[in-house]
């Protein structure tokens, strides 16, 4: 099972993934790159990042907050 620090780090990482799926910092931008708005490219890339993050999560930390609750109770 992962450490307590890592448990919170994964929770924060999930928050970050959700927070930046829409690139708020590109608000109002209409720059086109390779035919599509740059903010759409960000989103597509971000979803790929999410997929990799989920892969890491399933390998390292699957079960946190669910099957590790007994030790702490």
């Amino acid at each position: 099972m992962v450490s307590n620090v890592e448990r919170y780090a994964w929770t924060a990482a999930a928050g970050l993934l959700l927070a930046l799926a829409i690139p708020w910092f590109l608000w109002g931008s209409s720059r086109i790159v390779a035919g599509l708005p740059i903010w759409l490219w960000w989103h597509i890339g971000w979803m790929a990042v999410a997929s990799v993050a989920f892969w890491l999560f399933t390998r390292r930390a699957w079960g946190i907050w669910i099957t590790d609750r007994g030790e702490r109770a």
Binding site: L18, A21, L40, M47, A50
Partner: peptide, 15 residues
């Protein structure tokens, strides 16, 4: 709408 649905179905739902 792609962003809305991507965040909705792709990420929030995944979590």
């Amino acid at each position: 709408w792609i962003l809305v649905m991507g965040l909705m179905d792709g990420l929030i739902f995944a979590v």
